[in-house]
Computed example of a mutant assay.
Amino acid sequence: MHSDPGSGFPSYPSDYRSGFACFVGRPNVGKSTLTNALVGHKVVITSDKPQTTRTVVRGIVHRPDAQLILVDTPGLHRPRTLLGERLNDLVKTTWAEVDVVGVCFPSNEKIGPGDRFLVGELAKARRTTKVAIATKTDVASPDRIAEHLVDIAELGRETGTEWAEVVPVSAQSGDQMSLLADLLVGLLPEGPPLYPDGDLTDAPEEQIVAELIREAALDGVRDELPHSIAVVVEEMGLREGRPDDKPLLDVHANLYVERSSQKGIVIGHRGQRLRDVGQRARQQIEAFLGTPVYLDLHVKIAKDWQRDPRQLRKLGF
């Protein structure tokens, strides 16, 4: 056993493994749900809208034998804007830096051109170990899953990609999730833990709070909005003069959209939609941070921010 007293790092056996893995796939194939299920705590926003993940958030799985650090990436897609190009660059940089890439193929959908494009691009990262994951097995029949696994193996042959493993899982039902965790850990290099015990993510709290607000804002809006919403936490801190046993965290955040018509959609009739967004986001933030929260939300217009390098920088991209 090795340990570093007082550092917060766990003591670890000599055959301990630690390293980085990331899940990739077309947008909306269950990557974030998989990360949250493995970490056992919500660290990555999930939504039924594609393109919800923008920042690389690491979820950390702590085990007695290993530390598995999960890097979440945006879905790779054919870019239409400067933001799209930056997201794709982020994905490819991540592939080159991690120990294992898990490629997600939803079992309830056939393999399509988007999957071929992605695996073809991934094949260029020659040194990275690749695992194929058939996700969402809870919504597919056994026959469909069997056919899907054959298609995944065939796609590997077509693209010259060698799958270290092909594993069917359901993050929703938990089916085969511990097997997936064991498998990913087995592919990591031996080495000491990289993060202190108890850390679930290395993303700053403001970033996670912004993502939780964005998730609440995306929930139930029309399809044209997902790309157009950005959230910036302008100020966040404990309110002064409160007793220690009754803390209150003040969060002031701006929701940015690209056009005034979108502002109207987000605010809703007489402000009702924005109130609902605030209430849902506040509950999620309180659950994540374990502190009562006062959330102050404003909607602002940043005209065509996805195409403007200066505005992209200001909004954190």
Rank of each mutant, 00 (worst) to 15 (best):
M177F: 02
V119D: 01
T128W: 11
G220N: 05
P64F: 11
G156W: 05
R242C: 12
I145K: 00
D197C: 15
R310E: 14
E258Q: 11
F317H: 14
V24G: 02
A66N: 03
K136S: 00
G114H: 04
T52C: 08
A134G: 06
L34H: 04
G316D: 08
G264N: 09
A125V: 10
V221A: 13
S3I: 12
E165S: 14
I145T: 03
L255T: 01
R273E: 07
D182V: 10
L82G: 07
T94R: 03
D138N: 03
P142K: 12
P226M: 02
D115I: 06
E240A: 14
V185T: 08
E286V: 07
L184H: 08
G156Q: 03
S228Q: 15
Q67P: 02
G59S: 04
S170N: 06
P292S: 06
D115Q: 05
P243N: 07
Y16V: 12
D99W: 06
S11L: 11
T55P: 13
S18K: 02
T129Q: 14
G220I: 06
D99C: 09
A203P: 00
E147Y: 01
R116D: 15
D245F: 09
T137S: 01
V91D: 01
G102T: 04
N88P: 06
F105I: 00
R54V: 04
H148C: 00
R275Y: 07
S260D: 14
Q311D: 14
L90Y: 08
G271E: 05
G264Y: 13
R307N: 13
F317R: 03
A253K: 01
A281K: 00
L155W: 00
D115V: 07
L180T: 04
L70S: 06
L155M: 08
A21W: 01
P13S: 08
A146F: 09
D304P: 07
D199A: 12
P168N: 01
R214N: 06
R26E: 01
V293G: 09
S228K: 12
D72V: 09
S7D: 05
R80Q: 10
G120K: 09
R78T: 10
T201W: 08
E215L: 02
Q284H: 12
E158V: 13
G268P: 08
E205M: 11
R26S: 01
R307E: 14
V166P: 01
R307S: 12
K303S: 14
E234H: 09
R270N: 14
R280H: 11
D48R: 14
G278Y: 01
T46W: 08
I285C: 07
K136G: 00
T161E: 09
R222L: 15
G30A: 01
D143K: 05
M1Q: 12
D48A: 15
G268D: 07
A281S: 04
V131A: 06
V139F: 04
